[in-house]
Every structure is written in structure tokens, then in C-alpha cells.
Design a protein around this nucleic acid. Structure first.
Lengths: 208, 208
DNA sequence: GAGTAATTCTATCGGTCTATAGAATAATTA
DNA sequence: TAATTATTCTATAGACCGATAGAATTACTC
């Protein structure tokens, strides 16, 4: 019954995780049955328990798989010495690329992780927080360097970037022809410059 | 077995829809049982079928409840003669207010509507499209009036606004002390002006 | 090729779920 | 209050699901 920590086992398990990601993404955690997952892998329902001790463990692995490298990439971007704009560009590109590569697992992470037991949910939350804080740090740096108006709320800014990236991540998945770099450029342009004409006419009203 | 179209019936059914929204929001469509929903209403499981002919019908009603007035409000904002900035402000406020008032049903609409059968999903999709198109129209108007740079991609812009509003909608629900108008101001400020210092130093690099 | 370990299969138990039918109760009307 | 209608309840059918145990098979090692 117990398994080995052999290489082949780990590889097949990794494949099982990706299959589970696809099924969970399509049907949701509770809507997907272990039979569905097993079929996608190409084994019988009972055999699934050779790789996971429960359906819930499979969910945990999928969620982790969804965000791990995406969090790591964020950390290394934040650690570089690039100027603010380059970091922001790299962040958005990285976020959108992750969406294209691991969209199923990411979707599962975003939508289903709350069904995990407290402990695992907490661990994922910490990873997410690390991501948000790195991003927030990039903005704080930008303010300190004078690249950004010092009136901006860095917490808000980070959250806004994540929101835009998620919204466009979904679209990128739906429309495989979209070029990630094009989308990135538009995102960064919005974030830096806004949509406004260089403000001259048309808004002397509020704001002193 | 069949019911009446009486006023009282409709009212109790509306209450049942809100209860279902709460349960679906917490546990997801497949994770919630008809017993859970009935208990929240205060009736027994079997009695639920006096109000809905199936669990799935309940989901459809919840989703519709979640977006209906929010779509309508958007339409009336777009139809006014306010200047661009006022329209954008009203849109964001309306979106965030909906999140606070109907956050459970909205969450259900966003996360669970894909479990509806094709027909109903299609109807909801049309409502959502109407919303997106109204918003996109506001941006196109803004470009035409010279309030916005004519280089912006209105489709992208609308999607970005929705993404930001959704991200902050979640936060607003989690943190009831946040003032919606404050958040609205920050959103609009970002959208119009971006995060950048009024661009003088620090970016002569790309862009002709 | 015999023997061992790794992997998958079959079969099943106990539980939960949606939906229905018909009885029971509450509300309304005459 | 009697009759009618609206609402809720109880009980259950029928199906599926997660997990386990042990047999069967495959892959590896000597």
C-alpha cells in the first residue's frame, strides 16, 4: 500500500496533479468526482488513492502547483536592481505567462482553495501574501525613487495590478491568439499614465 | 403541488433566493446541499421544492439576482449626459456598492454560473456583455470628447476597470470599515492619471 | 527466469445526495 | 365553522461518491 519516493513515482504523481487540475478547473472541487480524475489520468477510480490519500490532498497539491513558480518568479523580480518600470513590466508579464501556462491550476487555486482545511489554506495564504508584499514593495520603492507620485496608496496599487492581471489572465486563456507582451504593454501603460489626456482641459472641477 | 403567483409566495421565494445565495457563496454550488439551503431558510429539505423545481433552478435565480440591478444601474449611468469623469466615478461607485449589498449573490454569479445549463448561462452572459459594452461605450465617448488619449484600447480599458472593481469588491466585503467613496476615488485617480510622477524625469526611454 | 517490489484492478461498505409522493398542518375564504 | 387552498412535513426511491482491502498484474532486480 505505501509508495516509494522514487523518481518515476514522483513524475507520475506530477502528471496526476495536472490531470486533477484540469478536472477541478472544469467541474469544481465538489463537482468533480475521483472517478472523473482517474479517468483523465487513464486509471480506475480506486487506483487514484495510490497517489493521494484523499481527494482533498489532491486539491492541495493542485493549488500549490498553481502558484508556486509564480510566487518564486515574483520574488526574484523584486530582488533585482532593475528600475521601477522594468520591474512592473516583468511582474505583469510573469503573471500573465503563468496564467497561460498553468491556467487550470491557477483557476483552481483562486476558486477552490477555500475548501481546503485550515492548515493548508493558511500555507497558501502565506504564499499569496508574500506575492502581494513583493509587489507592494516594488511600488514603495518606486515612490521612494520619485518614479511615482508619493500620494499613491501602495496597498491599493498592488491589489489593482493583481485585479487587472487576473481579469486579463482569464481573457488570455480564452483567446490564445493574444500576445502576452502586447497586453503587458497596455497594462503598464495604464498603470503608469492612466487613460487621461495629459490633463489640461476638462477637469478643473474637484480636487484643489 | 403547483404554486400560486400570489404576492406572498413571491416574497417568500425572494427570501429563499437570498438564503440560497448565502449558502452557495459559502460552500459553492456542488458543495452546498439542498438540506443546507432549506435549513438556512428554516424549512425542511423536501419543502425547498415548493419554491424551486430543482437545485439548479435555485442557482439560476441567485445568479440573476446578483447582477440584475447592477446591470440596470450601469445602463442608466451610460444613458445620462454627465461628462466622462462623472460617469466613470458613478460606474465604480455603483459596482462597489453592488458588491457590498449583494456580495453573496455576486460571488455566486462570478464563480458558479458556469454550472448552469447552456441556455441560462447564455442569458447571464448577455447581461454581462451589456454591462461591458456600456462601460466600453463610456470610454469611447471619452476618447471622442478628448478626455482620454485616443491611443487607448477601450475594450482593454473596460476590462481593466471591471478587474479592479472585482478585486476591490472582494476586499470591501472582507473589510466593512472601508469607505466606498474613498476606494472609488483611488480607483478613478488610478484610471485617469496612473501612478506615475507627472512624467518629466525617469522615462525618456521607449515611446516616441 | 525466480523472486520481489511497484502499480493497478475489482469489489464493496457506509454514507450522502436530489427529487418525488403523499400525508399533515396552516392559512384563507365562504 | 366548513370547505378550500397554500404551505410544510415525513418517508423514501434511486443514484453516486469517497475510501478501503485484498487480489491481480506489471515492472524491476538478482
Amino acid at each position: 500500500m505505501p509508495q516509494a519516493a522514487t523518481d518515476k513515482y514522483q513524475q507520475q504523481r506530477a502528471q496526476a496533479i495536472r490531470s486533477a487540475a484540469a478536472v477541478f478547473a472544469e467541474k469544481g472541487f465538489h463537482g468533480a468526482s475521483t472517478k472523473d480524475i482517474a479517468e483523465r489520468i487513464g486509471i480506475k477510480q480506486g487506483s487514484l488513492y495510490y497517489y493521494f490519500k484523499s481527494k482533498e490532498e489532491a486539491l492541495g497539491e493542485v493549488c500549490l502547483y498553481g502558484i508556486e513558480d509564480y510566487v518564486h518568479r515574483m520574488a526574484s523580480i523584486a530582488a533585482t536592481n532593475q528600475p521601477f518600470e522594468a520591474k512592473l513590466l516583468a511582474t505583469v508579464t510573469s503573471h500573465l505567462s503563468s496564467y497561460r501556462e498553468r491556467n487550470e491550476a491557477l483557476k483552481v487555486h483562486n476558486d477552490e482553495r477555500l475548501y481546503l482545511p485550515e492548515g493548508k489554506r493558511q500555507k497558501l495564504h502565506e504564499l499569496g501574501s508574500r506575492y502581494r508584499k513583493s509587489l507592494q514593495g516594488i511600488f514603495q520603492e518606486g515612490v521612494a525613487n520619485g518614479d511615482l507620485r508619493d500620494s499613491i496608496d501602495c496597498h491599493f496599487a498592488a491589489q489593482a495590478v493583481i485585479g487587472i492581471c487576473n481579469a486579463w489572465g482569464d481573457i488570455i486563456v480564452r483567446e490564445p491568439d493574444l500576445d502576452i507582451f502586447d497586453v503587458t504593454q497596455k497594462c503598464v501603460d495604464l498603470l503608469l499614465n492612466g487613460f487621461c489626456e495629459r490633463r489640461r482641459n476638462s477637469r478643473q472641477d474637484r480636487r484643489g
